[in-house]
Design a protein around this nucleic acid. Sequence first.
DNA 1: CGGTTTTGACCAGCGC
DNA 2: GCGCTGGTCAAAACCG
Length: 188
Amino acid sequence: MDFYFGNPHPYPNIHQYHAHNSVVSMTPSSPEIALSDYLMLDDYVDHQDSRSSQSTESSEKATFCDPTHGFSTGATSKNNNMKCKNGINENKRGVGPRIAFRTKSELEIMDDGYKWRKYGKKSVKSNPNLRNYYKCPSGGCSVKKRVERDRDDSSYVITTYEGVHNHESPFTTYYSPISFVHSDTTFK
DNA sequence: CGGTTTTGACCAGCGC
DNA sequence: GCGCTGGTCAAAACCG
C-alpha cells in the first residue's frame, strides 16, 4: 500500500482534533499513531469503493497533498477543480495545496486551532449529506475548508483544506511541549 | 450591536 | 447553446 506524509506539513497546527466521543491524534511524533491515523493515499477517490477493506485497521483515514507529493482528495466529485500535474497540486485559482482527511467523529466541526467562518452549505450530488464551506476570516488569508460526512458511513467526516494559512494559529500557545511538533517535521 | 450563521440566488466550468 | 453541478455571494436572521 502506498502512502506517505506531506513534507513540509502545510498545517502545523493540525496535530490533534478533539471531538465529542472522538479524539483524533494527528501528532506525527508517535509512529504507531502516525501509521494508522495519518495516511496519504495515492488516489483516495478511486479507493473509496474498496475502502472497507483498508479502513478496518483504523478509525481515521487521512489524505494529504502538497507540492512535493502526489495529490489525493476526499472530494468525490468528478469536477473537483483540481489540477494534479507534475506532482503539483493546486486548484484553478492557484490558492495552494489541498489536503483532505477522513475522521470518525459525531461532530463535523473540529477544533484545528484556527478560526473559521462558514460561508455556504450545499447539497451535492455525489454525497447525500450536506457539504459545509468555511473560510479563514483572517485578513489576507484565503484558506478554505470543506466539511462533509462520508457518503458511505455518516459516522466519518471528510474535511478538505485548501490553501495554506499565512499567519499563526491563535491556538498554537495551547499545545503542550510534549505533543507539539514543529511544522517542518519530516514524516516518513 | 457586532460577529456569525443561514439560505436562496448567482456564477463559472464542464459535458453533451 | 443548454443544462447540470459545485462553489461563492450577500442579505436577512440569529446569537452572545
